[in-house]
Nucleic acid binder design. Sequence first.
RNA 1: GCGGGCAUAGUGUAGUCUGGUAUCACAUAGGCUUGCCAAGCCUAUAACUCGGGUUCAAAUCCCGGUGCCCGCACCA
Length: 500
Amino acid sequence: MKSDELFALLRRRGVLWPSAEIYGGAQGLYDYGPLGTALKRRIEDTWSAWFLGLSEDYHLIEPAEILPEAVVRASGHLENFTDPEVSCDSCHAVFRADTLLETVRPEGVDGLSAARIGTILAESSISCPSCGKRTLSVPRPFNMMFGLDFGVTGDERVYLQPETAQGSYLAFARMWDVGRHALPLGIAVIGRAYRNEIAPRQVLFRMRAFTQAELQIFFDPAAFPVPFDSVRQEELPVLRVPARERGQESPERVSAEKLVESGLPEFYVYHMVQSYRFYRDVLKYPADAIRLFEKSDAERAFYNRIQFDVEVHLESLGGYKELGAVHYRGDYDLTRHGQGSAKDLSVTAKDGHRVLPHVLELTFGVDRNLWALADTHLVRDGDRSVWKLPPYLAPVALGVFPLLRKEHTAYARALTAELARDGISVEFDDAGTIGKRYARMDEAGTPYCVTVDGGTVASEGAERGTVTVRLRDTKAQERVARNDLASRIRSSLQPPRPSG
RNA sequence: GCGGGCAUAGUGUAGUCUGGUAUCACAUAGGCUUGCCAAGCCUAUAACUCGGGUUCAAAUCCCGGUGCCCGCACCA
């Protein structure tokens, strides 16, 4: 489906829509409706079950979303998240000042302040790459962070977090104290991040407020033991830098073992495999639509030593899109926050030596994955639309219908209430015909529908107290005793966990 | 930010050139009928992106704003 068509469908079904719609919308902001909210929760719960399931020492926390200025200064966001921009007074094209400067300054611009870049630019009298005239403006800073006035006087500067990771780094020292004083220690956060994107586009892919699920694993670079044998034979669809430089776009299948032989650390490959399994086996993206895209030195943030993006091919957006990533960030974060806070963030490892932990970061874009799950799992099957979500992701697990509105409604309503009390996400529907109800549920991704009919409510006979269960993907039906319903479907509603 | 295109019920559309308050389908709600896969009939709800201008009269013509799409740039 095209992006427009898919967005129209999601809007129509109340999955999501533009924020402040009645005022014309606000660029880059979206609201989730009932189905979208439920689906997003399930995605988050499913992510937690998998990634926190990797180790007993991986924990979920919820840091504040607002960061004091000192934090973003230390993290580098105040400086690096600010792009000095110049525009051309003749043709109004906009450029990044530092990129422009690199064209005349082969030694690079690393470490230069925005003001210094401006001075050099002015002296070098560069002409506009677009129209050729020498009418470039002075650089002005453009920071992608939202700044806020904080406190009563409003003169204290704070920022909405541009990524959720910072909260984990800030919490590390406390988490060390409240925990078992052991590395590796994992800190997971599911939260909103905010970026003042210049041009929000493609619905959920470039938002100004979005949800990230991230796991920061703090470890001793001298020893990060992982059960590598459990992933050794797994073949990963990787697209590595040398292949990319040859113009290749499709991934090659390479075993975890071979990746380690090529120089990647075992702990890195292990977590890349577990991430890959999450996308393939849990979210169930088609295996041939996934690729692990290695970022080159130039593309990575400078503190990332190794970076593979997890990309999935999306028809709606016409290509591979980044849904998550695995970053080896070294000791950059704790070094910077150690300096910024003047606190020693190193810890004493089991064998007694002091160590400043390194960080392996697993990131996951919740909104992007929600979109991707619609793109890849919402399919046309003949004349019906079916959202083939795994049962544990479905916003509504079960639909309950009376076959005859007059005769079976009371029974069906009672059954609905009973299943809801059992903790199953259930929806009653008696509108229109039975076929319409099935179709509506198919489109919402509901995996099971039960129908109360004459046999169910009969005072005697073999079908007394049984209902038909109809499966979304096959349309197959089966008679099940109502008392067995909850136990029959419950296990399929549990998000999978890694098995070792 | 720049350039181009687009904007009509919940969704998709006709009408715009050539001004006279809006077509059809699906969806939604209610009813009849039917009773396990979007059937049929009746009824109802429901729209001209916003603001200004021209005109007796604007969905239609003019100006501006907003949003969306495509390309460029941007995406720590």
